[in-house]
């Protein structure tokens, strides 16, 4: 996904001379093309995430369109107060791109995990929270985020994620994309667990459970229209995300459901547990530990759907 980001931002910067890219001392060689083409619009602001956000705020105030890129956990946790005060308070158009969000950096250990980033950013007024399912969605969402008048967070994977779409989808922020249809269960997935989610859906389908899948690429603002329809029409709504069950997409949908008494369907939230993942291991191992494999998710959904 990071390659798609580098490629897309380079293309977009050609069309809009106001785009400025800030990197928190990561992306070695990733932005070589960008740097070569727009030397005055790329800055490595160093290992100083708090400052990077403040600088981005100043660039936006000065009439530019800054895009900030670093590892998700550093961008969000270290610089949270700057995001709140410098970006959300004055509502400035800055795009924060968090790479390796969720467990993309699993093997680097819990300092690099970001399974609470959506929870904290979703609570901030004026913030838009985006999580593309694949590189194509990332490209569309990045372009759309740059049109916003306020701050946004694009939580992306790292590298080598399989493509979900065959071409660049037409995307509107706040409107989920239907990836497959089905009338018994609806699965809402935000982010890079989409390939597994689609496998879960086809496994369920093979045993007669008709399952629809939506890419909830926008977690805030939530697609409430879709939720209203799904909670009326299906018996079970499932959320899947590489994020804590506290406060992420699942949390957002649970809040919505609590506010809508007429919502009939039951809700199952799948995500990471409320714990620090101490054990070392690659992303696949971490997802296994969290119960976010195709087998475990299928089994959990089957159980919930039978209950």
């Amino acid at each position: 996904m990071r390659n798609a980001f580098a490629d897309e931002i380079t293309t977009l910067a050609e069309r809009d001379s106001r785009i400025v890219l800030l990197s928190g001392d990561i992306g070695n060689r990733l932005f070589n093309d960008f740097k070569e083409r727009y030397p005055s619009r790329f800055y490595n602001t160093g290992v100083a995430e708090a400052d990077m956000i403040g600088i981005a705020a100043g660039l936006a105030l000065g009439g530019l369109k800054p895009v900030v890129y670093t590892i998700a956990s550093f961008a969000i946790y270290r610089a949270f107060e700057q995001i709140r005060v410098d970006l959300c308070y004055p509502n400035l158009p800055v795009v924060i791109v968090g790479v390796g969000a969720g467990l993309g950096y699993a093997s680097n250990g819990p300092t690099h995990h970001s399974c609470e980033d959506v929870a904290v950013l979703r609570a901030l007024p004026n913030m838009t929270v985006l999580a593309p399912a694949d590189a194509w969605e990332l490209r569309s969402l990045l372009e759309a985020a740059l049109q916003l008048t306020g701050p946004s967070y694009l939580r992306i994977g790292k590298k080598g994620e399989p493509l979900v779409h065959e071409t660049r989808p037409a995307i509107q922020i706040g409107q989920a994309l239907e990836i497959r249809s089905g009338s018994d269960i609806a699965i809402l997935c935000s982010g890079t667990l989409m390939p597994q989610t689609l496998k879960v859906a086809s496994d369920l389908e093979s045993t007669g459970i008709k399952t629809s899948v939506f890419s909830m690429h926008t977690i805030k603002p939530l697609d409430e229209k879709l939720l209203g329809r799904l909670f009326r029409d299906v018996k079970l709504v499932v959320t899947i995300e590489e994020h804590s069950r506290i406060g992420g997409l699942g949390g957002a949908v649970a809040e919505w459901k609590a506010d809508h008494f007429q919502a009939n369907a039951r809700l199952l939230r799948l995500g990471t547990p409320d714990q620090i993942l101490h054990h070392s291991g690659e992303q696949e191992h971490a997802l296994e530990m969290c119960g976010l494999t195709v087998e475990k998710m299928t089994s959990a959904i089957r159980q919930a759907s039978a209950g």
């Binding site: 400052d51 990077m52 660039l59 105030l61 410098d86």
Partner: peptide, 17 residues
């Protein structure tokens, strides 16, 4: 601790433009 980084961004924006 917020004014200086934002000021740096403003100064950078001026120079870029």
């Amino acid at each position: 601790g917020h004014g200086l980084p934002v000021g740096i961004g403003l100064a950078l924006a001026s120079r870029i433009q």
